[in-house]
């Protein structure tokens, strides 16, 4: 599925080729091929343990891959760490703030560590959100802490933003605010973002591209619209013509096993896949279908 990337390597901000990472016997990434086009916001979706965090950590040179390679804006982070990290803004999984330091201190620290850090830009963003600069960072709410992390990442003016489940611990309102700030920044700066999450609804409105990671493999990598358009959810007995079963899972209400189908490519049966199926499938169903396939639950009977 990784071959579906649809983005050429030449215009990709982040590329992974045959990337593998093992932790003792556990395979975290298994020959991952992924291409994130420049200027896109890509949702990296998968269940816990799918390898999302590992993939981002490899991109940050926190982990050394066992095989394959990754390039961030054309630079291999493991071989040229300084150069690669200068091009990346990173928001870690949990809001990592220094206890006892104020918000302003965090910006000062970022400025002292990153020569290109735009503290005024970060300060303006925090001002807009009403986050007091003199407040101790460890007394910020979860949402404010995440916004501080995002402001620091944006302040680097990096071409590529890597966000490792920044929404996981936020309430719905804070999640919406976070995504809005991210969208504004990415659109105005023309940067690229890879946003990992296991909450599909969070990323549905923000992202224009979807990469599903399951069991260390890329299950799907395509534009969001294409993912909705080329999949159908029906019960197992009524497949769309020429469609291939992806995975089956228990439908809403828990009464019926539903199957996700991947529609045939345009021209295979005389249709273009779009006209045969004017309605689209929800992103959540697409993700669930691929995750079910990854867990090997396709075809399971629940009654």
């Amino acid at each position: 599925m990784g071959a579906d990337a649809g983005a050429s390597t030449a215009t990709a901000a982040l590329v992974a080729h045959g990337l593998s990472k093992r932790f003792r016997k556990k395979v975290a990434l298994d020959s991952v091929d992924l291409s994130v086009p420049a200027g896109s916001i890509t949702a990296l979706v998968g269940p816990n343990g799918a390898g999302k965090t590992t993939l981002i950590r490899v991109c940050m040179a926190f982990e050394r891959p066992n095989a394959g390679r990754v390039e961030v804006d054309g630079v291999d982070p493991w071989r040229h760490r300084s150069e690669a990290l200068r091009r990346v803004g990173y928001v870690p999984q949990a809001p990592a703030v220094y206890r006892g330091l104020s918000v302003e201190d965090h910006l000062a620290m970022a400025r002292s560590l990153h020569s290109g850090f735009d503290a005024d830009y970060a300060r303006r963003r925090l001002d807009q959100l009403g986050i007091p600069l003199d407040q101790r960072a460890d007394t910020l709410s979860g949402g404010q802490g995440a916004q501080l992390g995002l402001a620091i990442a944006l302040g680097t003016r990096a071409k590529v933003l890597l966000l490792d489940e920044p929404l996981a611990n936020l309430d719905p309102l804070a999640r919406r605010e976070f995504i809005q700030v991210l969208l504004d920044a990415v659109r105005s700066e023309g940067s690229t973002a890879l946003l990992s999450s296991h909450i599909v609804t969070d990323v549905e409105d923000a992202c224009d591209r979807l990469a599903i990671l399951g069991g260390g493999k890329v299950r799907l990598d395509c534009p969001l619209e294409e993912a909705r358009r080329t999949h159908r959810l029906t019960d197992a007995d009524s497949p769309p013509p020429g469609a291939t079963a992806v995975g089956s899972f228990l439908g809403k209400g828990g009464q019926k096993v539903m199957t996700l189908w991947r529609l045939a490519a345009a021209g295979a049966d005389g249709s273009d896949g779009q006209s045969a199926a004017p309605e689209t499938t929800s992103l959540e169903d697409v993700v669930l279908g691929y995750l079910a396939a990854g867990r090997g639950t396709a075809g399971l009977q629940f009654n």
């Binding site: 940050m60 926190f62 760490r81 300084s82 150069e83 990290l85 200068r86 990346v88 803004g89 990173y90 870690p92 949990a94 990592a96 703030v97 220094y98 206890r99 620290m109 970022a110 002292s112 560590l113 990153h114 850090f117 992390g149 620091i152 680097t156």
Partner: peptide, 21 residues
């Protein structure tokens, strides 16, 4: 321990320079 190293190390391309400070 407190999880701030990834933040600092991501900002500072050179961890050695970070440690030197």
């Amino acid at each position: 321990e407190q999880g701030t190293a990834p933040l600092s190390w991501a900002l500072s391309g050179s961890r050695r320079r970070w440690l030197l400070g």
